[in-house]
C-alpha cells in the first residue's frame, strides 16, 4: 500500500464519538443486560444478586408455582382473544372507514383518542364503568332489568373479559389506522379490475385485498403480540391482579418477585421465560421478513 493512510480507527472520528450512546445501549444494556438476567436466573439470588449457581431450580419452582401457571394461562387466554378481536375489529372498522364516508376525520378522532391515554387511565376508567354498584349493571337494573348481571371484574371466571373490554377500547383504534393505511396503499386499479370482472365486494376483500395486505397484518400481529406479552399497567390499574390471583400476568409476577418479595432469581427466571415467549413470536416473523430476501 502506497501513500499515507491515517489509522482507520480515527477516520470519521466524530461519527464514532456520536455513536457511543448507541453502541453503549446496544451492547451494555440490551445484550449485556439480557445476558446478565439470564445468567442470574440460574442462581439462588435473594435480596442481592450473587453467583451461586443452582441449575434449573428457579425454573422448576417457577413452573410449580400456581400463581405463575395462572399468569401464563391468563396471558395466553387474553392474548388469543385480544389478537383475534383487535385485528378483526380493527380491519372491519378500517373497511367501514374506507367506504367514502363523510366525517371520516371525526370518526377517526373518536376511535383513536383512547390510544393517547395511558393504560393506567384506561384501567381506572373501565374499573369505574364496570363497577357493579354504580356502573352498567346498576343502570340496567335501575331500568327494571333485575335479572341483568354484568360484573366481570369481581368474578374470577370473567375478569379477563373485563380487561379485554378495556384493552380493546384502548388499542383497536390504532389497529384500525394501520389497516386503513394498508387499504389505502392498495392500487386503485385492483378495485377497477375487480369491478370490471364483476366480483362481489366481500369477495374482493377476502380473496384479493387481505392477501395483498399480508405485510400490514404481520406487522400488526407483531406489534399487538409484543404488547400483550408486556401487559402490566392495565392489570395493575384495573384489577391489581385480582380477584385473588385470577388476573395475574407474568409481568406482575416478575415485578413482585424482583422488587417486593426480594427473591431476585425467581424474578429473573420469570423474565427469562417472557423473553423466550417473545423470541417465539419474533423469530418466525424475522425469518418471514428477512429470511427469504437477503440483500447485500
Amino acid at each position: 500500500m502506497a501513500g499515507f493512510q491515517p489509522g482507520r480507527l480515527f477516520r470519521n472520528i466524530n461519527a464514532k464519538i456520536a455513536a457511543i450512546p448507541m453502541v453503549f445501549t446496544a451492547l451494555v444494556v440490551f445484550v449485556g443486560g439480557t445476558l446478565w438476567t439470564v445468567v442470574y436466573s440460574f442462581t439462588d439470588s435473594k435480596l442481592l444478586p450473587r453467583l451461586n449457581f443452582v441449575g434449573f431450580e428457579q425454573y422448576e419452582r417457577l413452573w410449580s408455582t400456581s400463581r405463575w401457571l395462572v399468569s401464563i394461562q391468563n396471558l395466553m387466554l387474553y392474548g388469543v382473544f385480544s389478537l383475534v378481536f383487535t385485528i378483526t375489529i380493527g380491519f372491519l372498522l378500517a373497511v367501514l372507514m374506507d367506504q367514502k364516508i363523510r366525517f371520516e376525520d371525526a370518526f377517526r378522532t373518536v376511535m383513536l383518542y383512547p390510544f393517547a391515554l395511558s393504560f393506567i387511565v384506561t384501567g381506572l376508567v373501565w374499573q369505574w364503568v364496570l363497577n357493579p354498584q354504580f356502573g352498567i349493571e346498576h343502570i340496567a337494573r335501575s331500568l327494571g332489568m333485575d335479572w341483568f348481571s354484568f360484573d366481570p371484574l369481581n368474578n374470577p371466571q370473567t375478569v379477563l373479559f373485563g380487561l379485554l373490554i378495556a384493552g380493546l377500547w384502548q388499542g383497536t383504534g390504532f389497529v384500525m389506522c394501520l389497516m386503513l393505511a394498508g387499504l389505502r396503499g392498495i392500487d386503485e386499479e385492483i378495485w377497477k379490475a375487480a369491478r370490471v370482472d364483476g366480483i362481489p365486494r366481500w369477495k374482493v376483500y377476502v380473496f384479493i385485498i387481505i392477501p395483498m395486505m399480508r405485510a400490514v397484518f404481520i406487522t400488526t400481529l407483531v406489534i399487538v403480540a409484543s404488547g400483550i406479552i408486556r401487559l402490566y399497567d392495565l392489570v395493575v390499574a384495573q384489577t391489581s391482579g385480582g380477584p385473588g390471583n385470577a388476573s395475574q400476568v407474568p409481568a406482575m409476577y416478575v415485578y413482585d418477585y424482583m422488587f417486593q418479595a426480594q427473591n431476585l432469581a425467581q424474578g429473573f427466571a420469570a423474565s427469562s421465560m417472557m423473553l423466550l415467549s417473545v423470541l417465539i413470536v419474533l423469530i418466525p416473523w424475522a425469518y418471514l421478513e428477512f429470511g427469504g430476501k437477503k440483500r447485500v
Binding site: A19, M22, V23, T25, A26, L27, V29, F30, V31, G32, G33, T34, W36, T37, V38, Y40, P49, S226, I229, R230, P250, A251, V254, Y255, M258, L264, G267, F268, A270, S271, S272, M274, L275, V278, L282, A286
Partner: peptide
C-alpha cells in the same frame, strides 16, 4: 449496532430492569 438496537426493542423491559437498576 443498529440491528441489535432494533431487535433489542422487542426484548421485554422486565428482562433489563434489574441490570438497569444496578
Amino acid at each position: 449496532f443498529f440491528t441489535i438496537l432494533i431487535f433489542g426493542s422487542f426484548i421485554p423491559y422486565q428482562v433489563m430492569l434489574y441490570p438497569m437498576v444496578i
